[in-house]
Amino acid sequence: MEYQNLHTELKDNTLYVTINRPLKLNALNRQTLQELAAVVTYANETREVLGVLLTGAGEKAFVAGADISEFADFDIEQGAQLARDGQNNVFNAIESSSKPFVAAINGFALGGGLELAMACHLRVASENAKLGLPEVTLGLIPGYGGTQRLTKLVGKGRAFEMIATADMISAEKAEKIGLVNYVVPASELIGTAEGLLSKIKQRAPQAIAAAITATNAAVDAATNGYDIEIKAFADCFGTADFKEGVSAFLEKRKPSFTGS
């Protein structure tokens, strides 16, 4: 599929997705969100995709926020629709994807950009990255799940401070408070993200999908995470990969998983 604002490449079972609006610091406009929604669907439906590496074009920004000009004149109803569509079609879709998403944060991750990174399952940041949710400076709050995901990742006190002050934090502090998994030099950013995906791709794909479902349930107040885990655990017993994994263990060899 051809995209206007994304560059995609499938290589070694990893789908590389680059948000490609460097002159706009990769800001999320309506077209980009639609294309990201299509990418999530493609990743979920394509067996060859075992993981997704998401980053931004250029050296300045992962995503420096949403394209404010597109919603400057919105009313309450339009604002609700904007948030609902974005959350359902992109941010929640990434978080609940059966394929792991790794965000490689190569600069500013602000507003919707940080929300996009938080929707991913793992986050690696370059040393020069700056992260923040500045929406209150516009008379808004985060609308793509930022208040919820940030609170779950770093705790209520730190989340409220970041949101209410609108301050950016350094990559080093983001790692310290659990907002990102790793901080590395910019030259090592993509390689580190690839290394994480390389490890994950060696594991059973259906088990990875089950782990995503179960860990998501752990922070979902509307579900019983233990019950979700029991079902996801039990379902793994019906997969060919379970049989292969056990056979490989008993035979002292590396497993060859097929995702079935």
Rank of each mutant, 00 (worst) to 15 (best):
N92S: 14
C236Y: 15
P205C: 09
A66V: 09
G113Y: 05
G146R: 00
F160D: 15
S96H: 13
A117P: 06
G155C: 07
N181C: 05
L196C: 00
K60R: 10
P185F: 06
E45S: 14
E188S: 11
Q34Y: 12
A103W: 03
L110M: 14
A103I: 08
L10Q: 06
S96A: 15
L33V: 00
K176E: 15
V52H: 01
R30V: 03
A210E: 02
I177K: 04
E115Y: 01
L189H: 04
A221Y: 13
K24T: 11
N88S: 13
L10A: 08
P22W: 14
H121M: 02
Q87C: 14
E175N: 12
H7A: 12
A217S: 12
K11W: 07
I76W: 14
Q78H: 11
T46K: 07
Y42G: 01
L122I: 09
F62N: 02
Y144G: 00
S247T: 08
L189W: 08
S260W: 03
M118S: 03
E95Y: 06
N224L: 13
N92D: 15
E2D: 09
L33H: 00
V183I: 10
S126R: 06
G157A: 10
V154I: 15
D227W: 07
F74E: 12
G146H: 03
A164P: 02
I141T: 08
V246G: 00
A57F: 01
L54E: 10
Q81N: 09
T215V: 08
L153H: 11
K173R: 15
V39L: 02
T18E: 13
L150Y: 01
A129M: 05
P22Y: 05
D73I: 11
Y16L: 13
D227F: 15
D235T: 07
P134L: 07
E172M: 12
A210D: 03
E172H: 09
D167I: 10
K176R: 10
N181M: 04
G145S: 05
Q4A: 04
G195M: 13
N20I: 06
L53V: 06
M1E: 13
Y144D: 05
N106T: 09
Y226S: 15
V246N: 00
N216Q: 11
Q206R: 13
E251V: 01
K243T: 12
D85Y: 01
M162I: 14
E135D: 14
A186C: 00
A117C: 11
V183K: 04
E77Y: 02
T14W: 00
S170L: 14
V184Y: 10
T14S: 05
K176P: 08
G51V: 08
D235V: 04
G195C: 08
A164L: 11
K252Y: 11
A125L: 13
G245E: 13
